[in-house]
Amino acid sequence: MFDDGEFHVVVNDEEQYSIWPAGRDLPAGWRPVGSPAPKAECLARIDVNWTDMRPRSLREGT
C-alpha cells in the first residue's frame, strides 16, 4: 500500500487495529480512532494501544 500521506488508525468490533488512508471511504465495520497522522505515527500509536491481540469475542468468551 502507498506509504505517503496521512492514515487513520481504525478499529473493528473485535478490537483489532489497522490503518486506512485518510480521505478514503472506510470499509464497513471499522471506525477511526483519533486524528489522521503519517503512517509511522499511526503504527506507533497502535503499538501503545493494542495491548491484547486476542479478538474481543475470544477474550470475553462469547
Binding site: M1, N12, Y17, W20, P27, A28, G29
Partner: peptide, 18 residues
Amino acid sequence: PGRTAAAFLPDPFSDVPG
C-alpha cells in the same frame, strides 16, 4: 501490534463488516 496493523488491513470487499 504495529507491524500487524500494517500488514493486516481492513477488507473493503468483504460481505461481513469488520
